[in-house]
Amino acid sequence: MPKKKIKVLFFIYFLGSGGAGRTFLNILNNIDRNRFEPILVTCNYEGNYESYLNQDIKFVKLPTKRLRSAIIPLAKLIRNEHPQVVFSTIPNYNVIAIVARLLSFTKARNVVREAAFLGQNKKENLKLKLYGLFYRFSKRVVALSNGVKQNLMDKYDVNPNKIDVIYNPVELDHIRGSTGIEQIPEEYKRIYQGDAQVIVTAGRLVREKDHPTLLKAFKKVVETKKAKLVILGEGPLQDELENLASQLGISENVYFAGFQTNPYAFLQQSDLFTLTSKNEGFGHVIVEALAVGTPVVTTNCKPGAEEILENGHYGTITPVGDERQLADAIIEALSKSQDDRDTIIQKGLSRANEFDAQEIVKQYEQVFEKTLK
């Protein structure tokens, strides 16, 4: 008699353009269907990644767009679907998933994932303590990195014995098959024509990503190098950043390309990837850049950059918010000989292989199985 599959309900606000949505997509598409039955549940939104979800995965949208209003319908769905595990990510969503599971009065168990390195002031730290109280009702807590695990222990008061560290899964085969210049939209192909070197960054246009430091550093770069900067991502600060580029006199060299369903072609066709975040729980896009053979210069956005690049072994790390050192590092990276560049690329490719989705998802499978013991 075949062993009964473990039914896992995945809950997220929407399968959107951020790292959490991409991680869920990678886990869902790669989880072993012989042992697990995944169900994806979101609020009533259209997410950018929905079209990439494998067709054999049951997908349910709750009849609400408000997160708090999702508790009761989610509880009913848990009661009707009888999942053994309810898996969620991001603190607010985790709380909703935990409360819904409790109100379902079933034997399902919560597994929550924490991806961000949160806690900057007393008010925020107090909020994290509250999240920690809810996390006590979760069977396991997945931390995105060792730095996030330490933060969960220090600021959420989570028992270290219930924390598992699992890095983000990256679909290397898909990424490496999506990198040709022909896969870049027609209006942006001209960026890669000519002899100017191209720097690319990717991320939401929000304060935490600190794009102003990148723009100020780039101004110093173009004083000595023929270069272009491509900014992938969308967000509330776009007008502000475009105005800053204009004030710095670099608008003609800066391209705001918005959200791209295929950022990998931009990454691979560029000469350098740079990230200027203030902090990153992991830094998924750093791995993606390494995976397509693009050298990396990043700020020390703890804890992600340190762990992925092993303190600078696989890429260059500069202090957060330091435009001068960032500019110097970019100029140095763009000035390397082809032999040195090839060495850096090969090291990066090797490092990226360690985050392959098929291997990382096995670790999630082990956590789901461990949750039921």
Rank of each mutant, 00 (worst) to 15 (best):
A305W: 00
P73F: 10
L248R: 06
I344K: 10
V361R: 07
V222A: 03
L152T: 11
E242D: 03
L74R: 08
E234H: 06
A289M: 01
V320S: 06
S335A: 03
L144S: 05
V170K: 14
V141F: 14
H211R: 08
Y167M: 13
I71Q: 03
I345K: 09
I31Y: 15
I57M: 13
V198L: 04
L152E: 06
R140W: 09
K162S: 03
R324A: 14
I31W: 03
D195E: 15
E306R: 09
T316N: 06
I78N: 05
K228M: 10
R207F: 10
N279S: 15
I6F: 04
A115F: 00
F134I: 14
V41D: 08
G147N: 10
P91R: 12
V367F: 06
I181Y: 14
Q346E: 11
E242A: 13
G119M: 02
A202D: 04
Y364L: 00
P83C: 08
L214N: 01
A75W: 02
K7L: 02
R113Y: 13
I6Y: 12
E307H: 06
N34T: 13
G321H: 04
I57E: 07
G47W: 02
T316S: 14
Q84I: 00
A257P: 09
Q197G: 11
K228A: 09
L102P: 05
L67P: 13
K220Y: 07
V367K: 02
I72W: 05
R101N: 15
N29S: 01
A75F: 01
K149A: 11
K123P: 15
V254M: 08
E365D: 07
A108Y: 03
F59K: 08
P2M: 15
S145R: 11
T274N: 10
I330W: 06
K122T: 11
V170I: 15
G177S: 11
G304M: 00
E50A: 05
L372F: 13
A265V: 01
K370L: 09
P2G: 14
R68G: 15
P236G: 09
Q150C: 08
Y52F: 13
K228V: 08
T261H: 05
N353D: 15
M153H: 11
L267H: 07
